[in-house]
Amino acid sequence: MTGAHAALVLAALVLLVVGVLSLGASRVRTLSRRVGSFECAFSRATDPNAPWIAGIGQYGADRLYWWRWWSLVPRPTRSWLRSRMFVIEHHAVADARGYEGQLVVRCRTDDDTFDLLMSAEAYAGLASWLESAPPAARHVI
């Protein structure tokens, strides 16, 4: 491979990396500017050693959507039905390394238990959103 070919390959790789990083940054910016969005990390409640995965939550009419912070996937990584989601408990972060002022919110759905890490303000929004859900229609005739 000549020097010119190597330079072209290197330039193409740099452009590819810059393009992917630009798409990721644009996605994060777009998600974080949506109405009803908030910063929120996710972790499996069933595994105490599970890492926190940074992300963005967004309230929908009947679902809470969660997107992984750095990903190129256009759809939410997870979503939970509002009518099936319950907050079991919440508490301040015990290990505050970088998480000062954050709350761990343990949630449950029919088949899943998970933790969300969010600010106190975001928790107030989540609690209000869950409490303000319209009553489920039962046996409509």
Rank of each mutant, 00 (worst) to 15 (best):
A54H: 13
A92K: 14
Q58D: 03
G55I: 01
T77D: 12
L103S: 05
A7H: 08
S32M: 03
A94Y: 08
P76E: 08
M1H: 12
A45P: 02
W67E: 02
A4Y: 15
A6F: 14
R106T: 11
R78T: 06
L116G: 02
H5K: 15
P51A: 03
R97K: 04
I56L: 02
I141G: 06
R75N: 12
A133P: 00
Q58T: 11
G19K: 08
Y59S: 07
V17K: 02
A4Q: 15
G101A: 07
R44F: 13
A120I: 04
L130Q: 02
A50V: 08
C107E: 04
V28N: 05
F114N: 08
D110Y: 10
C40L: 09
V105G: 00
A7G: 10
A50T: 01
A50D: 05
T46Q: 13
R29S: 11
G60V: 01
Y65P: 02
A50Q: 02
P74G: 12
P76T: 07
A6D: 14
F42L: 08
Y99K: 14
P74D: 02
L126S: 06
L72V: 10
V20T: 10
I53N: 08
L16F: 05
H139E: 11
L64T: 05
R108D: 07
Q58A: 09
A94W: 07
G98R: 00
A41I: 04
P48C: 07
D47T: 05
V9E: 12
A6E: 15
T46P: 02
V140T: 05
R33V: 03
A124P: 06
S26Q: 09
P51N: 04
H5V: 15
V87Q: 06
A92S: 10
A41N: 08
Y99G: 06
L126N: 00
P134T: 10
R138A: 12
G24K: 09
V105H: 02
Q58N: 06
R34F: 02
S26C: 08
D62T: 08
W70G: 03
L130H: 00
P48I: 04
V87E: 05
R33L: 11
V93R: 09
V104M: 00
D95C: 11
V104N: 01
E39D: 05
A120C: 10
G36S: 01
E39L: 07
A41S: 13
V9C: 11
R97F: 04
D95N: 14
N49W: 09
A7Q: 13
F114G: 00
R27Q: 06
R82F: 08
V28Q: 06
Q58R: 12
L116Y: 02
G57W: 00
H91A: 07
R108N: 04
V35I: 15
L8R: 15
R82Q: 11
P135E: 13
T46M: 10
R108W: 04
F42D: 03
A12S: 11
W66Y: 07
R68V: 08
W70L: 14
I53W: 09
F86H: 13
G24M: 12
L8H: 14
F42G: 01
A7W: 09
R68A: 10
P48M: 04
T109Y: 01
S22P: 01
L117F: 01
A54K: 07
Y123I: 04
E89S: 14
R84Q: 14
V9H: 13
L117C: 05
